[in-house]
Each structure stands twice: as C-alpha cells, then as structure tokens.
Nucleic acid binder design. Structure first.
Lengths: 162, 162
DNA sequence: TATAATTTACGAAAGAGTTCGTAGAATGTT
DNA sequence: AACATTCTACGAACTCTTTCGTAAATTATA
C-alpha cells in the first residue's frame, strides 16, 4: 500500500552517498524489478527495449564501477558474478526528487507536483488515489495542530471523524 | 494563478532541444527571476549565496555556450552584452519532470507526486491548493467522459456545477 | 595621456561518464 | 585434447561539463 511518508522520514532523510548516473539507473531498474542478476542478464534486459545495443563490456564496466561505489554488491563465489542492488528504489527516488526540487523548482514541492500532474499521464483513478492520500495527510495535519493547541489550552478533544 | 496544464499541452509537448546542465540552470534561475542581465550581474548573483566563488570568466564561458545552444540570446549593441533567457521556466521544468518520470519512476506520475509530497516540505495550505486543483481536474475528467458517452448516446446534458 | 579596470574571446586543463577493444582465465563443446 | 565461447579485468578513447588563465580590445580613472 502506497503511503505518503510521515513526518519522521523528513528528519531522517539520508543524504545518499552517490547519486546514480543515467546508465547506472537503467541497471538499477532491472535489479529492482527482477532481483539479483548477472551482467549477461542485465545486458540482455537493457538491449531488449533499446534499438541501439549496448556492448557487454560496457555494462560490465559500469556495474564494476557501481560495486566500487557501493551501489551494488556482488557474489564472486562463482566465476559468473551475481550482482545485487545495495540502494533501495524509494531512497534513490527521494534523492532525485530532492535534487530536482532544489535545482529546478526552487524548493517548492507544490510546483513540482503540479508539473507532474500536468504532464497528463495520470489516470482518473490515480488522481483519486492521490486525493485520498492528500485528504488523509490533511486530516493528520489538522489533528496534529489541534493537539498542539490543546496542549496550551486543555479542554475536551474530539476524535477525528474517519 | 497556478493551474494544472490542460490536455492540449500533452500532445504539444515540445521536446526541448537542449536540457540545461546544472551550471546553466543556476544562470537561468537568475534570469527567470530578475529578467535580462549582464554576465557581471549574474556572476555576482551566483556568488551572493554560495560560499565558494565562481570565476567571472567561468560564468561568461557558460553563458556564451548557452547562447550558442539557443538557451540564451544576447544584445551585443554595447560592449557589455545583455543576455536574455530564451526558454521558459515551465518548459524547462516540464522537460526535467518528464525525464525524471521516465528514468526514475518508470513513467508513473503518481509515484513521483507521492515522493514529492512525502518530502514533507509542503505546507497545509499548499496541500489544500493541490487538493482543490485535483478536484477541478477530476471534475473535468468526469465531464469529458460524460460528453464522450453522450456523443454515442445523445441525450440531455448537464452543465458542470462550477 | 598613461595606467588601471572591465569585458569579450579563445584555448586548454581537469574531471566525470560512457563506450569499447584486447587480453587472459575459466568453462563448454566437439 | 583442441577449439570455441563466456567472463572478468584493464586501459584507452571520446564526449560533455566546468573551470580558469591569458590575450586583446574597450572603457574608466588618476
């Protein structure tokens, strides 16, 4: 179940050691979707969709670099090494979103959201889901505010309606 | 007034000739906020906030390159050239959002939106604004669907309430 | 007018990322 | 066993970006 991450996540926001490059990102996508894999598997996957093929040694090289950087780990017990992603997808997503927000949207999450929604690729049902989560979040905010107020002027408290 | 861009924008989606680099983006930010400017002005602006100063010729060089690329135009009628942004902010924002959506969020605007909202930098009032726009958009969708249906089975049509 | 400051233009260096060729070792095939 | 395939490792070339030094021209200042 998708959730808007809570207040805690904000302060705990890890600054990622290395921001993956474009080529690294494509490799991570394969690993995130299919789990651990060999260079061969990943190179095949990358060349499935693309028109211009990427050389095997190119993929190998990049994955070696990623392992050095800590983006991947690898099992070398057999000759054919098996690579595993060492960064979570949502972690990387957050890093990219933060960067984008700072450099392109002057820190405004709202403008970013509106541009994303304006891209028109969002279905009605998805828009409804977003609205539902938004409502949840807004209600949390309202309750939190109410509690803080209550701490100053103690009185009877209503429980949230849903 | 901020609006979620309409359906038209989707098909007209211009593929931007050049995606600005980081350094280029910082220069564009200054131009978008303050209008046309000289190299000196921009270099000063860039060094206002930053701790490590950027050399004048560095800024100059990048702006010259940007002019070649068509990101900027310049008035050379005086010795001190005056540069103007030749790309709109929202256009560049859309290019970056599209790229991010494809490369990091596998095309899902929704996941991107949730990550952005989850960054916690959005105030309650902003969340409410987003919600309102979302409602608008959803209502438009509903009406459009209704009209399409009506085209097949002609009948009386209700006008939207707002 | 002589000197200093400003500005443009050019080029080159440094770093990061991507690509691939080649070599050598290990494995598979005939 | 001989040959072919697969895999890792290494290094080099190439592009792109950023940075700045230097030179030459113009403008400002003493």
């Amino acid at each position: 179940m998708l959730r808007i991450t809570t207040r805690q996540t904000i302060s705990m926001e890890k600054t990622m050691k290395y921001k993956p490059t474009d080529a690294e990102l494509e490799i991570l996508q394969v690993l995130w979707q299919n789990g651990a894999a060999t260079v061969r598997t990943i190179n095949d996957a990358l060349n499935k969709d693309n028109d211009d093929t990427i050389g095997y040694t190119t993929t190998l090289k990049i994955m070696q670099i990623m392992a050095e950087k800590g983006l991947l780990s690898r099992d070398e017990s057999n000759r054919t090494h098996i690579y595993t992603a060492e960064v979570r997808e949502d972690e990387v997503q957050q890093a990219f979103v933060s960067k984008l927000m700072d450099s392109v949207f002057r820190g405004s999450a709202m403008k970013l959201v509106l541009q994303a929604l304006g891209s028109g690729k969002t279905s009605t049902s998805e828009l409804q889901q977003i609205r539902a989560l938004l409502d949840e979040e807004l209600e949390n905010n309202a309750n939190r505010t109410a509690e803080e107020t209550a701490a100053h002027t103690p009185s009877t408290r209503k429980k949230s309606s849903k």
